[in-house]
Structure formats: C-alpha cells, structure tokens
Simulated scan of single mutants.
Amino acid sequence: MNLAAANNQSLADFSTVLIYSAMAVYVLAFLGHIAEWTFGSRSKVARTASALSPRRRSVVAPEVRAKATAGAAGAEQGGGTAVLDRPKVVTRSAGARPDVPDGPGAAAGDAQGDLYGTIALALTVLAFLVHAAGVLTRALSVQRVPWANMYEFSTTFSMVAVASYLGFVVAKKNVRWIGLPLVTTVLLDLGLATTVLYAESDQLPPALDSYWLVIHVSLAIFCGALLYLGTVGTVLYLFRDRYEVKLEEGRQPGAFATSVLERLPSAASLDKFAYRINAAVFPFWTFTIVAGAIWAESAWGRYWGWDPKEVWSFITWAAYACYLHARATAGWKGRKAAYLALAAFSCYLFNYYGVNFLFSGQHSYAGVD
C-alpha cells in the first residue's frame, strides 16, 4: 500500500470514529430531550403549544354563570330587559394541564424545562458538528462526494436532516418539538448505517463518475431530509388531533398521553407545517427525477428504462402529487390527507431500502453484500 492509499485509509478510519463519536453525543442529546419533556412541568414547548392551539375551551367562572342565570330569570319574570355584565371567561388551552398551577412552582418548572431543552439543543449542535466532520473526512478519504453507497447516503441523509432542523431553530421557528423524534431517528439511521450498511471507502463505478452524481443525489438527499421532517409533523399531528378530540368530547386522556402530547403545537399547526414542507419540496423532487433521467441518458444512452429505482421514484412522485392534488382540489385535510402523506413517504423509504435489497438493476450501487 503506497503512502497516499495509507493516508486515505487513515481518513476513512477516522471518519468512522467521528460517526461513532457523533452517535455518543446524539445519545446525550436524546437524554436531554427526554429530560425536557419529562421533568419540565411547563416547558417552553408546552407554553408555545398552548399559545398556538385553536381548540380552546371557554370555562365561565361558576359565580359569574350563576349571576347571569339569575339576572336572566328576573328579567323574564319582570317583563323587562336585563343588562348583564359581560361574563369573565377563563380560557384553557386544550393542551394546558389543569393540575399545574401558576405561580412560583410553575415558573420553576418552566426554567427547569427550558434548561434541559437548551442543553439538549446544544448537544444536538455538537453532535451535528462531529457528524459533519465524519461525513467530510469520508469524502476526503476517497476525494469525491460521500454518497456513492447506502452507508454514505445514510450518514449524509441524517446529517442534512439535523442541519434542516437546526436551520429552522436559527430562523426562530417553533420546531423544538421535532428534537426528540429527530435525534431518535438519527440514532437509528446511524446505527443501521454502521452495522448493516457499512462499506469500505472506494472509488466510484464508471457509471457514477459524473457531475450528475452531485446534482441528482444531493437533491435526493435534500428532498428526503425535508420530507422526513414533514412526516414527523404528520405523525405527531395524528396523535395530537386524537388528543384534542378526546378533550372536546369531555374524555380524559391517559396521564402519559397528557404529559407528552400537551407539549406539542396544536393539531392544526402540525398539519400546516407538514403540508407546507411537502408542497415546497415537491418541485425539487420533480427536478430530482428529471436530473436522474438526464444522467441516465448520459450514462446508459436512454432517459427512462423502467429500472426498479426509476419506477419507485416515479411512484413516490405520484403519491405526493395525489396528496397535494387532494388537498388543493378535493378539500382533503386532516387525517385523510395525513394518511396519504404517510403513504407517500413510505414509498420514498421503500425506494431507498426495499429496492436496494429486494431488486437488482442498473442502480444497484448499495455497497452491501
């Protein structure tokens, strides 16, 4: 082995160490998010959710209600018109906890929850930096973009997903609720990448050695990362919506559901978040498929060949097109639209995992034996 090859192997090994180190810090961030959601009685996440919830129950104070009833009865008996004071209405959010009083105790819980949340966010930033360093050193070890096989694609995909989340945070968007499911999924993704999908660093196959690799695959990673965030919003919307419905119907959700779901934004906000992401990403996913067709013509002399990867890319595109069309024309909102969005993202996941493992074709570059 010459000196250059030895240096490249050292970089590849160092990249693996950095990915494992990032996983360790992500575990700490995961524990921080758990602490924020568990020990913070009314964390920043909970307060924001209460402020955003459109489903609010108006609770009129009993003494005011009694006074109003008596006044109305007297007016009816006397045949006159009673002028009543405007009732004082106490509004309680669908997500507010009636068992947590206001005052010093609640303030202490707020500070505690915010402290855990700040620590979790700081650890997520640190883990992302180590993660990005691992992806960069992998690229330097082979002197190319680091997404030529499933291992490299997976590590880059999760890195972009975290970067997107942190971008929303920097833009001061209400996305703290994404932190826990995001870090959990990133740990699963990196665990799968380092155990099942790992491949030694190597040079590109001739068909992949093209500038279209940068355009086509980078777009696929970017779209997938954002679609994942939209899917998180969709899944949490389904749980939050059921929680709000139970409250509207006067049914009391379980203690665990209450402690978790009250910290989410309202169902309407989650639904809007998911829809906006899916609608914004769809044109980029369309261009991803077009770029892949152009690359296919350059590499294999045809734009479309009904390869399994091509077919499932189109199926994913069609599924998201149905979702957007249903919301725009058929008025599908809420749970029906959410199920369509989940089906569409399932197509994306199958296009990545299922096609690579179950089918063989011209896109068989998974790097997994």
Rank of each mutant, 00 (worst) to 15 (best):
Y151M: 06
E152A: 04
F153N: 05
F153G: 02
F153W: 10
S154N: 11
S154W: 08
S154R: 05
T156L: 13
F157T: 03
M159C: 10
M159W: 12
A161P: 04
A161L: 14
V162R: 00
V162L: 12
S164A: 15
S164M: 14
Y165L: 05
G167Y: 02
F168S: 03
V170C: 02
A171W: 05
A171S: 12
K172T: 08
K173M: 11
K173G: 08
N174C: 02
N174K: 07
N174D: 13
V175E: 00
R176A: 15
R176T: 03
R176C: 03
W177E: 06
W177V: 08
I178P: 00
I178D: 10
I178C: 09
G179Q: 09
L180S: 05
L180M: 12
L180K: 08
L182S: 15
L182Y: 00
L182Q: 09
T185S: 14
T185G: 05
T185N: 09
V186N: 03
V186T: 11
L187G: 12
L188A: 11
D189V: 07
D189F: 12
D189Y: 10
L190R: 08
L190V: 12
L190T: 15
L190F: 07
G191M: 12
G191F: 13
A193P: 06
A193W: 00
A193E: 07
A193S: 04
T194D: 08
T195V: 09
T195R: 12
V196G: 01
V196W: 12
V196F: 15
L197M: 11
Y198I: 13
A199D: 14
A199G: 07
E200V: 07
E200P: 01
E200L: 02
S201V: 06
S201N: 09
D202I: 03
D202E: 13
P205Q: 05
P205W: 07
P206S: 09
P206E: 13
A207I: 06
L208K: 00
D209Y: 05
D209H: 08
D209P: 10
Y211A: 10
L213N: 13
V214C: 01
V214N: 09
I215T: 12
H216Q: 02
H216P: 00
S218T: 15
A220T: 15
A220R: 08
A220L: 12
I221V: 13
F222Y: 12
F222W: 15
C223S: 13
C223G: 04
G224E: 07
G224D: 11
A225N: 08
L226D: 00
Y228G: 08
G230I: 08
V232S: 03
V232I: 12
V235S: 06
Y237F: 09
L238M: 14
L238V: 13
L238C: 11
L238T: 11
F239G: 15
R240G: 05
D241R: 15
R242M: 03
R242P: 03
E244I: 10
V245H: 11
V245K: 11
K246M: 11
L247Y: 05
E249V: 02
E249F: 01
G250H: 02
G250M: 06
G250N: 07
G250A: 02
Q252F: 03
Q252R: 15
P253L: 05
P253R: 02
P253F: 08
P253G: 06
G254H: 05
G254S: 04
G254L: 01
A255W: 13
A255Y: 11
